[in-house]
Design a protein around this nucleic acid. Structure first.
Lengths: 214, 214
DNA sequence: TCGGAAATGTTCACTTTTGGACATGCAGCG
DNA sequence: CGCTGCATGTCCAAAAGTGAACATTTCCGA
């Protein structure tokens, strides 16, 4: 979603809400917190995750700049179903539920952008769900790597994936760390990805796609 | 979602769109069709499903009366990712993409309702996703039965579940038919559900909940 | 009422996934 | 430098799930 051409309501969000900076790996809100505000991510990257009663962590979304999150409260959720944690340094606007509702009423242009956000999130979650239903963990991992590499579809492909632990990848894929380790090595052996010695992974998108299409 | 108190735009939907009746088990649109309209279900029940390259079917949603479906086209999807098939007899309004977009611009009240729909669908799909990520197929089946039984949250619990084949249940749960058969019999043996000899299944919600919470 | 089609019950060999355990490699730090 | 804490590589037995076959039951139209 590109909001850069519509400064007006981003400024308005700043007025109606409160801006805050976060270091990496900080909690914006935790699973179970009271849900009474929507957030807008101005800069950075955030993960939405959820912990099962048995302690397993699932990542149900990655939020990139210029996107909303925490909108579940508008659907009547009284508490946060998932927690929001910064991955990189972030700038976040917190807009109280009432203010968002007012803006949705009063500003058709804002409502339009917000609706577009909901629609695209919808599409993405549906894709995640069908991916879970249809594909093996090997394919799901390949897909996650490709999605991370193509981060922000409009932008150029981003072949380097920043530091994400195998544990985190496992949470995104819906499998175990040992399995992620196994497949990452397999992909590396096949030349689909390369480790650059540092904190990045380089993805050969064209090759990795082979996995997805068998 | 309750739209009964806002007849105005339901009537407007009727004007801007085309109404059509469907028999059970008919295709409203098929996976891969051109996506250029949003639908509004006035009466009946519809399933949204998707077939994998290998022929496995997944049901990613059940639409009940007074809800929209096929809204993916507003997010830029040119073709249908999933197919829509009637389960019961249905009355469906088809609203061309352009007309919906006009209404979203011009009628704040309509935009509000549509946004509410997107939000609640969002919440539901997220729940489905985390259910897949966390729970075994036994628990997922128990959850599907409970959701079907509580159909339309506002309404009274509906202990009788209409005719859904085990194959369909398997698609909703994300497992195989033989597995569904196995667990259905297990649940029956434990007294969590009863077959009434006809086409219905009666759910003992309080008991079935035990499965979910282990 | 009969016969076929569809749905369901049941079994089983095979595959995938889990959930550890343990060893190794690689920082940062006193 | 050695210690410590992570992240990772590797292995494996046990559990869960798959996919197909086959038997049985139910439904429905001729």
């Amino acid at each position: 979603m590109n909001l850069s051409s519509s400064k007006s309501f981003v400024e308005e969000l700043d007025e109606r809400g409160t801006i805050r900076q976060y270091q990496p790996r900080r909690t914006v809100f935790a699973q179970g917190d009271v849900a009474d505000a929507v957030y807008y991510l101005q800069r950075g990257k955030i993960k939405l995750s959820l912990v099962s009663p048995r302690g397993k962590e699932a990542i149900i979304g990655i939020v990139s700049a210029d996107a909303f999150f925490g909108e579940g409260c508008l659907a009547g959720q009284a508490t946060r179903m998932s927690g929001a944690t910064t991955i990189t340094a972030c700038t976040v606007a917190r807009i109280p539920k009432g203010a968002i509702q007012d803006m949705l009423h009063e500003q058709p242009r804002f409502a339009e952008v917000f609706t577009a956000h909901l629609l695209s999130r919808n599409v993405r979650i549906e894709e995640d769900l069908t991916d879970q239903l249809f594909n093996s963990s090997e394919k799901r991992l390949a897909r996650v790597l490709l999605l991370l590499a193509n981060y922000g579809k409009d932008a150029l492909p981003e072949p380097a994936i920043g530091k994400l632990s195998q544990q985190t990848l496992a949470g995104m894929v819906g499998t175990t760390r040992s399995r992620v380790s196994f497949f990452m090595n397999k992909f590396r052996a096949l030349g689909y990805i390369q480790y650059d010695g540092g904190t990045n992974v380089h993805v050969q998108a064209s090759l990795l796609n082979v996995i997805l299409h068998e």
